[in-house]
């Protein structure tokens, strides 16, 4: 399974006051808080960690079908970043997940998978967050069609095989990102 999360850093800066009392304690472990407070750009580090947790939540939620708001149970570690790319691990209970992120100006995006080799066949497409972004994607793509199922969840159908591939869509502020896999199917 795959999950992604995009953050418009400009919008996040306007919408969230992460420095308010109690805020970090509710969403980040003490190790994560240390990483944030020691970073050269604390806000970017916070949203990086947050996007890892959110992308991981998407995988867990799709697996369990249960909605829970428990950011502290998604524990990020082994986080490496040069300010442009980042990689890390997320643990949720016994489950281990892996993340790769990129930071391009005010855009921050994280992809999370359940096994490292899954990154090899993963595609990332940024789109403008227009209402008909599905159609825009479908015009750009040769072999895949992006649709939504009855519950509103995205589906990626291969036009030749008809198989449903793993897909995740995230939208925030001025940005929208679609990730999908050549090798993983929806049920994987």
């Amino acid at each position: 399974m795959i999950g992604n999360d995009i953050v418009d850093l400009k919008k996040a800066g306007l919408d969230s006051n992460w420095k308010r009392k109690g805020y970090l304690d509710k969403i980040c472990t003490s190790d994560e808080q240390q990483l944030i407070l020691q970073a050269s750009e604390p806000a970017v580090m916070l949203w990086l960690i947050w996007s890892m947790k959110e992308a991981a939540y998407k995988i867990i939620h799709r697996k369990t079908g249960i909605r829970l708001y428990e950011p502290l149970k998604y524990i990020c570690d082994d986080l490496l970043t040069d300010g442009i790319k980042a990689s890390g691990k997320i643990s949720y209970l016994e489950k281990k997940l892996y993340s790769q992120s990129e930071i391009k100006g005010p855009l921050l995006h994280s992809s999370v998978v359940s096994a490292l080799p899954d990154f090899e066949n993963l595609h990332l497409q940024y789109l403008r967050p227009v209402p008909d972004y599905n159609e825009v994607f479908n015009r750009l793509s040769a072999f895949y069609q992006l649709t939504r199922n009855r519950s509103g969840l995205p589906e990626m159908v291969h036009t030749i095989t008809g198989q449903k591939h793993a897909v995740s869509v995230s939208h925030h502020g001025s940005y929208l990102a679609v990730i999908y896999s050549d090798s993983l199917l929806l049920a994987d």
Binding site: A12, D15, S16, R20, G22, Y69, H172
Partner: peptide
């Protein structure tokens, strides 16, 4: 936004 749900809790 899920990042603002914390604000509601606080």
């Amino acid at each position: 936004n899920s990042a603002n749900l914390v604000d509601i809790v606080l």
